[in-house]
Amino acid sequence: MTRLSNAFSKPHPALVCLVTAGDGDTAANLDALVEGGADVIELGMPFTDPMAGSTVPCLSEGQFAERLGVEM
């Protein structure tokens, strides 16, 4: 948790950005967010049945070209 608390203890309010994995080029998106000044990135995993994920889109037929697999 130290890195996270560090992100919130800068002189300016922390910029927290949400992006969905698999929505375009994920690696490029993450790099761009860092370069653009994001202090914290929330990486959303697309799910078939999101409950209250705000901008996280539903995984549905035709929406993603390939099934998104998860490798940690």
Binding site: D49, A52, C58, S60
Partner: peptide, 19 residues
């Protein structure tokens, strides 16, 4: 109409409405 349009999808919409 999301998913296969059955019970799971109805429950999703119910929960989203509740939120």
């Amino acid at each position: 109409t999301s998913g296969r349009g059955t019970l799971k999808d109805a429950m999703n919409e119910g929960l989203r409405d509740w939120v």
